[in-house]
Amino acid sequence: MTTVAWNAKELTVGQLSTRSGVAVSALHFYESKGLIRSRRTSGNQRRYSRDTLRRVAFIRLSQQVGISLGAIRDALSTLPAERTPTREDWARLSGGWRAELDHRILHLQQLRDDLTDCIGCGCLSLDNCLLANRYDKLGEEGPGPRRLLDAHPGSCATTVTCQPA
């Protein structure tokens, strides 16, 4: 494994890939989407400033919690290009996503809890259950698993006993 000197001001794409654990192709993709940037040498080789390591780490962590690349790009565009982002910069960015993440956590907990017992009402018989989705009424509300996506009154996801749909 090639190590990068701690005081190196710039990294090649290979060094950035090795140090960040992100494939070269992904780094090129991030660059094409405006998430990171490089300068070109006279030989047309990419060189990344060292603070790109932090940006790539931020991108990876943000993706792991489900933040879209567009939202990540928008957040990174508010960071100063002329200096390494500070702890306060990162706190401001991540704090902006707190409400969205809290909402996702709530939905994931709901999904986990509802799937433990059943998909709909608890009888586990989707073929025979008249309460699960009688006459496909939930299809009128939109695509997907409506009871898990929407916490509407009368849904199995929000009540102890199911009411006919």
Results as ranks from 00 to 15, higher is better:
T2F: 04
T86C: 05
T84H: 04
R134L: 11
Q15C: 03
E141Y: 13
T41Q: 03
S155T: 12
P153H: 07
Y30A: 00
E31C: 00
E100C: 06
Q15R: 06
V160H: 13
A151R: 13
A157E: 02
G139R: 09
Q45R: 14
P80R: 14
A157G: 15
S49N: 11
S17M: 00
R147F: 12
D51I: 02
L111P: 02
S77G: 08
I119K: 10
D102R: 14
R104Q: 15
R87H: 14
L148V: 12
N7T: 14
L16N: 04
G139S: 10
Q63E: 08
A57P: 00
R54Y: 13
R50I: 02
E141G: 05
N44I: 00
N133R: 06
R40P: 00
V65Y: 03
M1E: 10
C162T: 10
I72Q: 02
W97G: 04
V24Q: 07
C129K: 08
I67G: 00
I36Y: 00
Y30F: 04
Q109I: 02
L149S: 11
L106D: 15
G120L: 07
L16A: 06
E100I: 07
S94C: 10
R146L: 11
L16G: 07
L93C: 05
R73L: 01
R146T: 12
C162L: 06
I67T: 09
H152Y: 15
E88L: 12
I59K: 04
R55G: 06
R104G: 04
R40T: 05
L148I: 13
Q63I: 01
E141M: 14
A26M: 10
S62Q: 05
S38C: 12
A23I: 01
N133S: 10
L111Y: 08
T158P: 08
R54P: 01
R60P: 00
R46F: 00
Q64T: 12
R134I: 05
W6Q: 14
T18R: 12
D89C: 05
A23C: 01
A23F: 02
D127F: 09
A23H: 12
A157N: 14
A132G: 06
G14K: 11
L11Q: 05
L130Q: 14
V160Y: 11
N133G: 10
S32E: 02
A132Q: 12
P85N: 06
T161F: 14
T12Q: 04
Q64E: 14
K33S: 04
L35D: 02
E140L: 13
L111M: 12
V13G: 03
C162E: 07
R112C: 04
L11W: 03
A99S: 13
I72R: 01
H152V: 15
P153F: 05
G144D: 07
L35P: 05
